[in-house]
Nucleic acid binder design. Structure first.
Lengths: 319, 319
DNA sequence: ACCTGAACACCGTTCAAGT
DNA sequence: ACCTGAACACCGTTCAAGT
């Protein structure tokens, strides 16, 4: 079904499709021809910041591409919220069946990761090279990262479970590591602190994944309930909670976020790393074709890395 | 369908139910009678730590109760993982239709919260009153909390979005606040640090929500991909990432978790709170029937609290 | 009053079959 | 080769109607 027709027409077509074989066939044939002459068109679809307002303006059905799918996902998300972005809905938007999408993305999780990285292009990395105290600049970037995620907390949730490693995410990591380096934080410490900072920012954004639309109907009730519980708790059984009362919930998220960043940065500098972190270099190493980094000794191969993760996956349960 | 029949029989019954009206009617009648004489039975179902091995041993279909539903959810989760716990599956397990569950739980999110609180009963709070350094004891409790969540990372994800305020969660808060108090942390700082510590623990557990079953098939591939990206990044465009290499991913989760707790505790003591935190007491106050806490001045009413949350909900986006 | 069958309005993903 | 209709195997939630 061609995208340049208005929504009403498209809906009508959807409803008729099962009963009006002639109309359906015309469109199917049309789509096939468009496809056959390979009239590729990916300008408007891939340039997501200023996507076309109306579908009528698009001259032809764009051929499916990964970029086009991601751009359409971003558009749909901005327009209707992440929870409305489903494979089926997305396919409808692209005038195809859901199965077609799986040619370009492995699954929903991969699509989310790709979309998040796309969005991460909006993070302001300019403080990385500007003047001023390195800490301020670090926090400015982290705050920018958090604001981007704040708009789509559902994506933050995804990012927590499957950390994206797209190009924008890598640029963010590089900028943050540069500032930590500038601040004189030793590399291993910087690596761990980086993780803490991004996890904190991401989790803070993810916390706000209750309702995407403007108002917060459910969240409001939750908050009331929470405040009530904290206020009505018995001082006999829970003296410390009662003494704090609603002060437990005090502070704007902005203040808490800023304080959290400061706490992590200050704490990381004062807390010694465990001695376990001694490199313990491994003889076997990967191909290293791209990497002429100066620390070949510490670079483990994939097998070793897997071992490390294996330990990570089970370690905490024994604690 | 009575729960004391084995799985094979039950499956057979499921398949026959549409065609064999007689058998179905016998069971329906049976269930109705059980219900009518109000043969309440909630011992084995509510005591989740030692739920009965076999459904055969249960003498009768338990009447639906909130506790029974939660207990069954926990059982089902332990047996098949959180992702298999759906309203429909749960209803099947309780020999009813999904609609019946909504008499006792508002929705899936509420059920998750209730189940999480149930699980939180397993957190070891004994360090709260034991001997030793307050910090060690604090970290021991937090580590116990994290291990419990580690077993069901999906629940940790839920907890991040909708913080539970069940009785076990409140006991946990009380124990942690007592230790922070013992450590001489001032109340407002303790409140914020508490949040940071629990958020960190919860987010760390939530990160592991990829696959619930024993092996980690998808996670393994993700990890490989991630290690490859970090190793193969160009030292020209990303010098700091390249210099760190796989050291970015070093350390066991156990070590990272312990370090994180230490960082937060140390950092919180060295980082001043924003002056905004001045109580600014409000004249209007809530009913306060239960609360004879000594800090009535700082206890805001629901309206004020709502205002605070409103600020929290939008503040960070402007940062 | 309490419970529930059936329906509503959807999902992600796969695969055999089309062009 | 590339694409997709139709199916598979499900979802959460609601509500009118049963007992």
């Amino acid at each position: 079904m061609p995208p340049w027709l208005g929504a009403g027409v498209r809906r009508g077509w959807e409803e008729r499709r099962a009963t009006n074989a002639f109309v359906a066939n015309v469109f199917v044939a049309n789509a096939f021809v468009t496809n056959a002459i390979d009239c590729r068109y990916d300008g408007a679809m891939t340039a997501h910041p200023t996507a076309p307002r109306s579908r009528r303006e698009r001259p032809a059905k764009p051929a499916l591409t990964r970029e086009g799918i991601i751009a359409t996902t971003v558009d749909l998300m901005r327009a209707e919220g992440l929870e409305r972005v489903t494979m089926r809905r997305l396919a409808k938007e692209l005038d195809t069946g859901p199965a077609s999408l799986y040619v370009y993305v492995r699954n929903m999780a991969e699509l989310h990761a790709a979309v998040l990285d796309e969005l991460l292009g909006a993070v302001d990395l300019s403080p990385a090279t500007s003047d001023g105290e390195w800490r301020d600049r670090l926090v400015r970037i982290l705050t920018s990262y958090t604001s981007v995620l704040f708009e789509y907390p559902g994506l933050a949730q995804s990012a927590l479970v499957a950390r994206p490693f797209g190009k924008h995410y890598l640029k963010l990591l590089e900028a943050l590591l540069a500032l930590l380096d500038e601040g004189g934080i030793e590399p291993d410490r910087a690596a761990w602190l980086l993780d803490l900072l991004l996890q904190f920012a991401t989790a803070t954004a993810a916390e706000h994944a209750h309702r995407a639309p403007g108002d917060t109907p459910q969240s409001e009730a939750d908050w009331q309930a929470l405040a009530t519980v904290v206020r009505d708790v018995s001082p006999r059984t829970h003296p410390h909670i009662a003494a704090l009362g609603t002060r437990l919930l005090s502070g704007s998220p902005k203040d808490r976020l800023a304080w959290g960043f400061d706490v992590l940065i200050a704490g990381a500098r004062h807390t010694p790393l465990p001695e376990v972190l001694a490199p313990s270099p491994v003889d076997t190493r990967g191909a290293g074709e791209t990497g002429s980094a100066g620390d070949a000794g510490e670079t483990g191969n994939a097998g070793d890395t897997r071992g490390t993760r294996g330990a990570r996956a089970t370690g905490a349960t024994e604690g």
